[in-house]
Every structure is written in C-alpha cells, then in structure tokens.
C-alpha cells in the first residue's frame, strides 16, 4: 500500500521534472528573473541616500520576499493547466490520489526552488557584501529554502480554487500584497494593530521574517528565534494538508 503510494508519487514527480527540464524557455526565465530582480533590489536600496540606512538590513528579508513571490507564482497555475487539459481527472481515474499528486508536484518544483533560493542568496551576499559566518549563511539558506517550498505549497493550494488560468490572476495580488504590509518586512509586526497582526500570521513571509530578524542581528543565531522556528514548518504542513484536502476529485 505504502509502496504503491510512493511509486505513484515518484511517477508524478518524475513526470513533472521531465516536463520542467524540457521547457527551456520556462527554465531560463525561472532562473534569470531572480538574478535581474535582486540586482534591481541592489540598485533600489543603494539609492536610498541616508547615513542611517543600512541596505544590508533589508537585503535578506526582501530577497526572501523575492523568492516567496517567484516560487508562489510559478506553482499557482500548475494544477489549473492539469484541470483544463483534462489530465487531472484522468490521473484520478487511473488511481492517483490527491496527496500523491500534490507531493509529486512539490518534489519536482522543490528542485527548481532550491536552485532559485541559492542563486538569490549568493547574489545578495555578493552585491550587498554580506559578511556573515558560514553557519549564519547556512541558517539563512535553510529559512529561504523552507519559505520557497511553503510558497510553492501555497501556490498549489491557490491553483485548486481556479478553474481557468485567468482565475488565478486575482489570487496573485491577494496573497503577495498583504505579505508586504503585514509580514514585518517593512514595518515591525508589533507596530501593527492586533487584527492586522493576526492576518499577518497567515502569510508565510511573516513566519520567515520572525526567524530572519533575530538571526540577522549581530551575533544572532537560529536559537534566538525560539518558538518562531516552528512557525514555518507548521505553516507548511497546514498548507500542504489543505491543498490535498481541497483538490477536488469529483464534480
């Protein structure tokens, strides 16, 4: 039984991976766009003309936001394509289950998101001359990678609710814009009204930022994040469970 589930999950992951690798244009854009956007971030932050402003303070949280945005958008359309192409009902009719399809997709896209996260972090380190010990870099990489995986899960969840590719579009700003305002990237969450702080918990960036802010402080480490460390994995598990439960098999 478990072996069957693993075989089917591997089949979905393998098939999606082959499709990703063969789509050269998509692959090139998925890898080049973060490079260009991080460079623009460097130009933007470098243009703030204030002696009290430290661009490096914002570089990593905003880099995390870029990863969140790109990975979320990449996956927000995947299941819609399967639905409109009638391959999703065919997968169900063949015996594939919701969890296997979601996990298979996530496995394949995680490979791409991992490369994107590494590119963003390496470019941030180079452009902003981030001078962190390697353990801190490793911690930052782990948080950004987790954020990427969770953002993809969120994208897959959202794509469950759209019947056409056009219906996905309103979901993009609905998730991304509140992330900027409520997650603590720009304004510390404690400065927000209580109801806005509660809303902020529903953005993955909030949980990533809760770990990154203490981590980025001088001498800071993952341990300083305390309970916030559990936020990202818990959020990810909840989103994955919701995505599996809401992937409709029957009309």
């Amino acid at each position: 039984m478990i072996a069957d589930r693993i075989r089917r999950t591997r089949a979905v992951g393998g098939r999606v991976m082959v499709q990703l690798v063969r789509d050269h244009r998509f692959l090139a854009l998925a890898l080049l766009v973060p490079v260009a956007v991080v460079y623009l971030l460097h130009v933007f932050l470098g243009s703030v003309n204030s002696p009290f402003f430290d661009p490096a303070r914002f570089a990593v949280p905003l880099g995390a936001f870029i990863v969140h945005f790109l990975t979320y958008v990449l996956t927000a359309i995947v299941l819609v394509r399967e639905r409109t192409g009638e391959t999703l009902p065919r997968m169900f009719a063949c015996g594939y289950r919701q969890g296997e399809i979601i996990t298979g997709y996530l496995t394949a896209y995680t490979a791409l998101a991992s490369v994107q996260s590494l590119i963003v972090l390496a470019e941030l380190a180079w452009l902003f001359e981030l001078d962190y010990p390697w353990t801190k870099f490793l911690s930052i990489a782990l948080v950004i990678w987790l954020l990427a995986v969770i953002s993809m899960s969120l994208g897959i969840l959202v794509s469950n609710f759209a019947r056409t590719e056009g219906q996905v579009l309103p979901f993009v700003p609905a998730v991304i814009i509140p992330s900027i305002f409520l997650s603590g990237v720009v304004i510390p969450p404690e400065n927000l009204p209580a109801w806005a702080r509660v809303l902020g918990w529903f953005t993955p960036l909030f949980h990533a930022d809760a770990v990154l802010v203490p981590l980025l402080k001088s001498g800071g480490s993952m341990a300083d994040a305390g309970w916030s460390l559990a936020g990202l994995p818990c959020y990810g598990v909840a989103v994955l469970a919701l995505a599996s439960l809401t992937l409709r098999e029957r009309d």
């Binding site: 499709q19 192409g85 009638e86 065919r90 063949c94």
Partner: peptide, 30 residues
C-alpha cells in the same frame, strides 16, 4: 479504478511528452 480503464472524450495527454512517456506515466498508477 484498479479494474477500470477510462478514455476521456478529449485526448487528455501531456502534449510535451512522448507517446511512451504518456503510456508509462498513466500506467505507473498501477
């Protein structure tokens, strides 16, 4: 579904994959 074969009205195939890859993928469910 272990005993039923379903052929939908539209081909419902992955157009960017080969014949062999499509048969192998849908077959891998069993």
């Amino acid at each position: 579904r272990r005993q039923v074969g379903f052929m939908p009205q539209s081909p419902a195939l992955y157009l960017d994959l080969s014949t062999r890859a499509n048969v192998a993928f849908f077959g891998a469910a069993h």
